[in-house]
């Protein structure tokens, strides 16, 4: 559960948002929408503790959060293979039993994200969709109870978007992982989520995705 009360954030003089009040329950699959620069990424950074709120409180029931950031520094020269990239997030251990468990975990996650066949390919040479899957897989290593995807589907074609979202939906259904999905994509929001939080006039309001028209969504989000 994530409970946000009277949350405000400023950078210097610039007010990003104020008086946010909302709650996200365990097992929710919600989307977080709003125009460029409205504060979606900033809000997420506050939730995971990378930024401090200017005022207000945020409570998370001490659960592990897996965060897939919006941007990544991976150019075409990037040397690590997909599997090695995912492994960066493993905890260090010399215990052979734990190492075996880790190897098993990696295997499972590679399979779940459909990366097994290309696990040895350098990440720099992977396609946009494969990269996003690798980022997701890396975030899944900590066995998160909450998963935050910051525009992971941007710049993917429809087929790959659907693949990725089906995977996330499965995580939500099968393993009851809470999902917060940041997007500008009306169709995906409508297809995969029921509830959405919309940034509007420097604050946030819950919207019923099924009732919002595409025009309204695009105008406001």
């Amino acid at each position: 559960m994530i409970k946000v009360e009277n949350l405000s954030k400023r950078f210097g003089n610039q007010l990003v948002f104020e008086n946010l009040n909302f709650q996200i329950n365990d097992g929710d699959f919600i989307s977080l929408v709003g125009p460029n620069g409205s504060g979606k990424t900033t809000l997420v950074k506050i939730i995971i503790g990378l930024e401090k709120p200017s005022s207000g409180t945020i409570q998370t029931s001490s659960q592990t959060i897996g965060y897939v950031p919006q941007f990544r520094n991976v150019d075409s020269d990037y040397p690590l293979s997909i599997e090695q990239f995912i492994r960066l997030n493993l905890k260090v251990t010399l215990n052979p039993e734990k190492r075996r468990q880790n190897n098993l975990l990696i295997k499972t996650i590679l399979k779940r994200t459909g990366l097994t066949e290309i696990k040895d390919r350098p990440l720099g040479l992977a396609s946009g969709g494969e990269k996003q899957k690798a980022y997701l897989a890396q975030a899944l290593l900590n066995d998160p109870k909450i998963l935050i995807l910051d525009e992971s589907t941007a710049s993917l074609d429809v087929e790959v978007k659907t693949q990725l979202m089906d995977l996330v939906q499965e995580l939500n259904h099968k393993y009851h992982i809470t999902v917060i999905f940041i997007t500008h994509d009306y169709d995906l929001t409508k297809k995969y989520t029921k509830k959405a939080l919309l940034f509007k006039n420097k604050t946030i309001e819950p919207i019923d995705v099924q009732k919002v028209s595409k025009d309204m969504f695009e105008m406001e989000g």
Partner: peptide, 19 residues
């Protein structure tokens, strides 16, 4: 520092995201 330093050096943003 091998493990955290590798994470931070090969994926700075991911390392931040992982806390």
């Amino acid at each position: 520092f091998y493990k955290p330093l590798s994470f931070d050096s090969f994926d700075h943003i991911g390392a931040q995201a992982a806390g």
